[in-house]
Simulated scan of single mutants.
Amino acid sequence: MFVIEERFGVAESLTWEAATGALFWCDIPAGTIYALDTQSGHRRRWSLGEPVASFGLAGAGRLVVALASSIILFRLDTGGRELVATINLPPGLSRLNDGKVGPDGAFYVGSMDRSSEPEGALYRVDGTGRVDILTSGFSTSNGLAWTKDGRTMFHSDSQGKMFVDRWDFSPESGEISNRRRLREHDLANGRADGGAFDIFDTYWSAAPSCSRINRIGLDGSLLGWVDLPILKPTMPCFGGRDMRTVYVTSLDSGLPETGKDGIVSFRSDVPGLVPYVFGNRTCL
């Protein structure tokens, strides 16, 4: 069902805050972050004055936010900003993109490069502002999510070769290793955009080219999908009191008629994982 029937440029970075029952998302090109109280329907809005690529929870009424080429802490009550790090993007790269807080409390964020020899990368940014490049060679870094034990990370490139990779992940150090290609250029089932894991380690992947959410196993097998009323879904996240409600954002459908844009939700048979918080190392 529709939670919000509204056209956004690129609605992304859906995040559920269990403590408040709020659903957060951003509209990337509009440079705007939204929060919806799912009980009362009250919506808040913050304009940051430049593209908001992605964000995560940071505790104490704050978000860790990826702007075009920098990472900040943003206070929701005052709008105050604190610079965490500046990402030195190679010349020609447009901006940062999909990002999430990982099991080690660091913020992981990728970049975009639509050139013939893409240099988009995946970065790790910790609470001290240290920036490490983990891997590179992407057109559009996307799809970040971790399994329940925090020891497997999924990551995709939603343009170019349109692949999904699986990595071993160290929640102690944030290091990634043992890269395996799970899916590549699967036009029949849709390119892999934003993603999320449920508690049984099934990866739920937005497929904007097929108007659905794909369910993918740890071995890369397609386990099924959920067709959606929105035309171009971008990001799923689990929420609700029992973490069994799946919310999904979308990007501009480009259609003149209404009813194909916004945020939708549906119920899952299994719960998803609670988001990690920046600066907080999770005990696994």
Rank of each mutant, 00 (worst) to 15 (best):
A85W: 03
V64A: 11
V3T: 04
P118C: 06
Y34H: 15
F8Y: 15
E5C: 07
A106I: 08
D193F: 10
R166W: 04
A121I: 04
D37L: 00
R45E: 14
M235N: 10
R183E: 05
A145V: 05
A35G: 01
S47D: 15
G259I: 12
G217D: 11
V164T: 15
A18C: 02
V164C: 15
G259Y: 12
V277Y: 01
R241Q: 08
T135H: 09
R44Q: 12
R62W: 01
L182S: 06
V52F: 13
R166Q: 13
L251Y: 00
R81N: 10
S253I: 03
K260F: 14
V10H: 14
D104S: 07
V52G: 09
A106E: 10
V274I: 13
G9L: 02
L134D: 08
S156Y: 03
V248W: 10
A207K: 10
F2S: 09
I213M: 13
V65F: 08
T249H: 07
I176M: 07
L48A: 05
T258E: 14
I4C: 06
S141P: 12
E6K: 12
I263A: 08
G31R: 03
V226E: 09
S94N: 13
M153N: 09
F154M: 15
S265I: 03
D113Q: 09
S253T: 02
S250M: 11
T258Y: 06
W204F: 12
I230K: 02
N97S: 13
I230H: 01
D219F: 05
R212E: 10
A188W: 00
N280I: 08
V270K: 12
D126F: 00
P118I: 05
D132P: 06
W167G: 03
G129L: 08
A121C: 14
E5P: 12
Y123V: 04
G31P: 03
R124S: 08
V131Y: 05
G272W: 01
T38A: 12
G59F: 00
K148I: 15
G41M: 01
A85I: 06
R267P: 03
D113T: 08
L223R: 00
S211H: 07
D219C: 07
N142L: 07
R130C: 12
P271I: 03
D252F: 13
W16Y: 12
P171H: 01
R215K: 15
D27W: 12
L48M: 09
P103H: 06
C210E: 14
I4K: 15
S265T: 05
Y276P: 04
R124C: 12
G41N: 01
I230S: 00
L73V: 08
E257V: 11
G21Q: 00
L134P: 11
T258Q: 14
W225F: 15
S205Y: 01
G224Q: 12
G143F: 02
G9A: 04
E117Q: 11
